[in-house]
Simulated assay, not measured.
Amino acid sequence: MLRIGDASNAVDGQKSNLSKNSGHCVHSADTETATLWVNLTSIHNIEKVTIYFMTDNKQYVSSFQNQSSFLGFSVDVSNTTDRLQGTLCYKDTNFTLDTIPAVFTAVCSVHGQYVIYYNERLSKKTYPENYYHFTNNNVCEIEVYGCPATGCYGSNNSLPCPYENCQQCHKQTGTCQVCKPGYKGQQCKLECETGKYGVNCSKSCGNCLKQRQCQNVDGFCSKG
């Protein structure tokens, strides 16, 4: 069953019909802030993000309300649903009613779990004259390109990170940037020292009878 306006429509893979009633677009009421999260379920090496705006299958004209409500949008990638804790990949400061495209791609070579589309029209803030005084989530599709697995690199995102315990590696060189929980070092071959665990060995075991009984990956106390 088609869900008119449902947020899941932004990731259903359907982008041939960019109209409000197609059942393949997100539609929300006009508001001061608009946010859409795409949860990749784990941290991935992202290359680019493409957004299909709702156009009602019409050519943009300067009076088209949706178009003016899109102006000023941003794209962030974060490890949480808080965009401010992540990386700003793109912030629109230059598009006009005549130049904003129906399909936009932001190059975004970062690691993250959440791709976040955001826009705002805050009541106490002044915006350019051609901005509509509200914004919304009228988006038909958000596509995220990059590694299909947690750790990979290369021009086609097809090479696994070269070190077994590497969680995130550099997109071009394969150099490890983040080790899997419980490991450290340039090649992620070293286990956390006694009493430490987690990503980058940054957490301390505080509830085990003896620190050496603390698992380096998750901090589990093997003997109580």
Rank of each mutant, 00 (worst) to 15 (best):
M1P: 03
R3Y: 04
D6S: 10
S8V: 08
D12A: 09
Q14M: 13
Q14H: 12
Q14W: 06
K15E: 05
S16M: 13
S19W: 02
K20S: 12
K20H: 11
S22Q: 11
D30I: 05
T31K: 09
T35N: 06
W37N: 12
N39L: 10
L40G: 06
S42A: 12
I43V: 15
H44T: 12
N45K: 10
K48T: 03
V49R: 01
V49I: 14
V49F: 03
F53G: 00
M54L: 11
M54I: 01
V61N: 11
F64R: 14
S68I: 07
F70A: 02
V77P: 02
N79Y: 03
N79S: 11
T80D: 01
R83A: 09
R83H: 15
L84E: 15
L84H: 12
G86H: 04
L88K: 13
C89M: 02
C89A: 04
C89P: 05
T93R: 07
F95S: 00
L97M: 10
D98N: 14
T99M: 04
A102Q: 04
V103F: 00
T105L: 00
C108P: 00
Q113T: 07
V115F: 00
I116C: 01
I116A: 00
K124D: 14
T126H: 08
E129D: 11
E129T: 14
N130Y: 08
N130L: 05
N130D: 14
Y132L: 09
T135Q: 01
T135S: 02
N137C: 09
V139N: 03
V139L: 02
C140W: 02
E141T: 09
I142F: 05
E143N: 12
V144K: 04
Y145V: 14
G146M: 01
C147H: 14
C147M: 13
P148H: 13
T150K: 13
G151W: 00
Y153R: 09
S155G: 07
N156L: 08
N157T: 06
S158C: 10
S158L: 09
L159F: 09
L159T: 15
C161S: 03
P162G: 07
Y163W: 09
N165E: 03
C166K: 02
C169A: 09
H170L: 02
K171A: 08
Q172Y: 04
G174F: 03
C176H: 01
Q187F: 12
C188V: 09
K189H: 11
E191C: 11
C192P: 07
K196R: 15
Y197E: 06
N200W: 09
C201I: 14
G206V: 14
G206Y: 03
N207W: 06
C208A: 10
C208V: 11
K210C: 06
N216D: 11
V217L: 10
